[in-house]
Simulated scan of single mutants.
Amino acid sequence: MGLKIGDKAPAFKLKNQNGEVIYAGEYLGNTPLIIYFYPKNFTPGCTAQACSFRDQYQDFLEAGAKVFGISSDSVESHKRFREKHHLPFDTLADKSNSVRRRYGVKGNLLGLIPGRETFVIDKDGVIQMKFNSMAASQHIPKALEVVKSF
């Protein structure tokens, strides 16, 4: 079924592009979070989405938000992806798709392609926006609009 607007966002632990464990529980309940799930590093849509988050990153920071990108790619792939595109936020490796499942992010094309979904979580840890669309460019303005409303 997945999470809905108004639900508490579940905490999770994943490794970032440097192999460091990131514990979302450190942020949930005190910092607005943008968590976006995407299919795969280095694909055209995912690259465009990551670079759009990069280009708007200062706006997210000014709104007090932390951004995390999550895919099932390896730590090493995340490191290369982040370095190549100069991403200022952590990309997290969900190799087992366990966090993707906890958040209820469904695949597309009969489940063959991992879904693209963005969650905006307020400083109290409550989901305020859930946006599911393979149109990568639509995620950033919607997330920014919501986080600026806090």
Rank of each mutant, 00 (worst) to 15 (best):
A65V: 02
A50W: 07
R116G: 08
K40P: 03
E76R: 13
D73A: 10
F60K: 06
V126Q: 01
F60H: 13
R116S: 13
A24G: 02
T43V: 09
P141Q: 05
F89S: 13
V99R: 02
E62F: 08
Y23D: 15
P114S: 08
G107N: 14
L87Y: 04
R116N: 04
L28P: 11
Q49T: 08
N16Q: 08
N18C: 00
R100I: 03
N41I: 06
G111S: 02
F53P: 10
P141L: 01
Q49I: 01
C46V: 09
N30D: 00
G25C: 05
P44L: 12
R102C: 09
K95D: 12
Y38P: 04
Q17A: 14
E83P: 04
I127F: 02
N30A: 03
A136S: 15
R101I: 12
P88D: 09
Y38C: 13
H139L: 04
G104P: 04
R100G: 08
S133N: 14
N41Q: 03
A93W: 06
R82T: 15
Y27F: 15
I34N: 06
R82G: 07
F42R: 12
N30F: 00
C46R: 13
D94K: 08
L92S: 11
G104H: 03
V21E: 15
C46A: 14
R116Y: 06
R101Q: 14
A50Y: 12
E145C: 01
K15N: 11
D90S: 10
Y38K: 07
A135Y: 09
A48Y: 08
H139S: 01
I22Q: 02
G111N: 04
P88I: 09
L110M: 12
H86R: 12
S98K: 12
T47H: 09
N41S: 06
Q128N: 01
H78R: 04
I121E: 05
I5R: 00
K123V: 00
A65R: 00
T47P: 13
Y57P: 09
V99C: 03
T31E: 07
L144M: 04
L109V: 11
T31Y: 11
F53E: 09
I34E: 09
E26F: 11
F60W: 06
K15I: 06
D90F: 01
M129T: 05
L14K: 14
L144D: 02
F119Q: 00
Y23N: 15
V105W: 03
S71I: 11
Y103V: 10
L14N: 13
D59H: 14
N132I: 11
E20P: 08
V126T: 14
P88N: 05
N108V: 15
S98H: 09
G111W: 00
G29E: 11
D94F: 06
P44K: 12
K130P: 01
S137F: 05
S98Q: 12
E76Q: 13
P88C: 03
K123M: 04
Q17Y: 09
P32V: 02
C51I: 14
Y23L: 08
R116L: 12
H139K: 02
N30C: 05
Q56K: 15
K95C: 02
L110C: 04
M134R: 12
A93V: 05
S137R: 11
G107P: 09
Q49Y: 00
L28M: 07
S133L: 02
P141N: 01
A135L: 15
F131Q: 07
D90H: 10
S52P: 00
N41C: 15
G125K: 05
